[in-house]
Simulated scan of single mutants.
Amino acid sequence: MSLKARITEDMKTAMRAKDAARLGAIRLLLAAIKQREVDERIELDDAQIIAVIDKMLKQRRDSITQFEAAGRQELADIEKFESGVLQAYMPQAASAEEIDSLIIQAITNTGAAGIKDMGKVMALLKTQLAGRADMAQVSIHIKAKLAG
């Protein structure tokens, strides 16, 4: 079953269960997917849907930080709930050991010698770790490895 079909089925399940909060989060996701499909005039595949979900998760993390800084815990809680719903559609997170081995492999494959070659390594890893790791953290590990 495709990811989009799974999301649609989960929406129907949430409707039947009268779970308004979950239904709202799933509808936001489906709206974002549909918007991207209309904008680009394509049918999104699972990898592209994961990219949409990843973007939405980043937005939620930023919102949570902002709401907590402003003392609006009730809004932060809503964002945390939506993040949990969205996270259920992401692939299994990569372990730290797996990320380290992929970084070493990417450095070897690209022949990266220093920080100036970081873009090549990131480009290779972005496809392998899409939706499975926080690329900002991966970037920090790559810098550490390339720096020495």
Rank of each mutant, 00 (worst) to 15 (best):
D100H: 03
R16A: 14
K55Y: 03
V85T: 02
L57W: 06
R41D: 15
D77V: 00
K12H: 09
E9V: 15
Q137V: 14
R6Q: 15
G24T: 07
A130Y: 09
M122W: 04
K18R: 10
A96I: 06
S101Y: 04
E43L: 14
A96V: 05
F67G: 02
A17Y: 04
R132D: 01
E43Q: 14
L124G: 00
M135A: 09
F81L: 12
R60K: 08
Y89G: 06
G84P: 02
A51D: 12
V52S: 04
I42V: 15
K12I: 13
V121K: 05
M122D: 05
A70V: 09
I107Y: 01
M122Q: 09
R132N: 00
M15C: 12
A5K: 06
A20I: 08
Q92C: 04
E40L: 10
V52R: 01
K12S: 06
R60L: 14
E43P: 02
R27C: 07
S101G: 00
L102G: 00
I50S: 03
Q128M: 10
A123D: 08
E37D: 07
I103C: 09
L124T: 02
A130L: 13
V121G: 07
M90T: 09
Q35I: 00
T65N: 10
D117R: 06
L75T: 02
I50V: 15
S139G: 13
S83V: 01
S95R: 05
S63T: 08
D77C: 00
M135D: 11
Q137A: 13
A106S: 14
K55M: 00
A130Q: 12
L124Y: 05
R16M: 11
H141A: 14
M122I: 14
I7L: 13
Q105G: 09
K126F: 08
L124K: 09
A96P: 11
I49F: 10
I42E: 10
Q87H: 12
D45R: 03
A96Y: 06
K34I: 09
Y89F: 15
T110Y: 04
R60I: 02
R132A: 03
K58L: 13
S139P: 03
A96F: 01
A106H: 01
A47Y: 07
A130K: 14
G71A: 15
K120W: 00
D10Y: 05
M11S: 06
A32V: 04
I53E: 01
I142K: 04
T8S: 09
G131F: 06
I64T: 07
K55R: 12
D77A: 09
M135R: 10
G71R: 10
E82G: 06
A96T: 11
Q35S: 12
A51T: 10
D19Y: 01
L102C: 05
I78H: 05
D62W: 00
K4V: 04
A147F: 10
Q48H: 10
I42S: 02
K58T: 12
I142G: 08
S139C: 11
H141W: 07
A147S: 13
Q35A: 13
R27A: 06
E37S: 08
S101I: 06
L86C: 05
T110S: 08
I7N: 01
L29Q: 03
